[in-house]
């Protein structure tokens, strides 16, 4: 397994430290073990939640709700669909581009992409566990505010663009 090469390397490093700087190896080992325990507790349900929404939320439902929906309702949908646990950003890019072609506003797509990146539900759950509910709530509110503003600014700058790039269909290498 090529992917496990890096973590194995770190393990070897721990081994070397165990013989050269045993105190450091012990301290680090205890901290790492504690981390592992916390992660092992929280990751399975988080990933399961991702799996469930992957199975139950069809991609074309997002398409339908965001397509031509303008105004406040569209923004609300953009936020909700952005936060649902449905995969990495490289899936959101082509999705948002195709929505733009279908008449969604730039503002709503900026909110959609931002929520997808920064306000995902599984991410918020882990954040609450490790950084606390106050931190999470405040980051959610301030990030949302910034995203709404960004949408306005980008709408202003890009609207006059006659032939924007997303009008040309580009083939995106999708990993399956």
């Amino acid at each position: 397994m090529k992917a496990f090469r890096a973590p194995l390397l770190v393990l070897v490093l721990y081994g070397i430290l165990f013989f050269t700087l045993p105190q450091l190896a012990m301290d680090s080992g205890i901290i790492a073990a504690q981390y592992f325990k916390e992660m092992a507790l929280i990751m399975p349900p988080v990933f399961l939640l991702m799996g469930l929404s992957e199975v139950w939320i069809p991609k074309n439902a997002i398409q339908k709700w965001l397509g031509k929906d303008a105004g406040v309702k569209g923004t609300a949908f953009a936020l909700v669909f952005g936060t649902l646990p449905t995969g990495p950003l490289y899936i959101a890019f082509p999705l948002a581009a195709s929505l733009l072609r279908k008449g969604a506003s730039i503002h709503n797509m900026v909110v959609f992409l931002g929520a997808w990146a920064a306000l995902k539900i599984p991410q918020l759950l882990v954040e609450t566990e490790f950084l606390g509910p106050e931190f999470t709530a405040l980051r959610f509110v301030t990030t949302l505010g910034v995203l709404l503003l960004m949408g306005v600014v980008m709408e202003f700058f890009l609207k006059k663009d006659q032939n924007p790039a997303w009008m040309q269909e580009v083939e995106i290498p999708m990993k399956k």
């Binding site: 496990f4 973590p7 301290d27 901290i31 790492a32």
Partner: peptide, 14 residues
Amino acid sequence: LLLVIGIVGLTLGI
């Protein structure tokens, strides 16, 4: 995940 756990352990140990 494992990589980050290992590195965090080392970083906070040092």
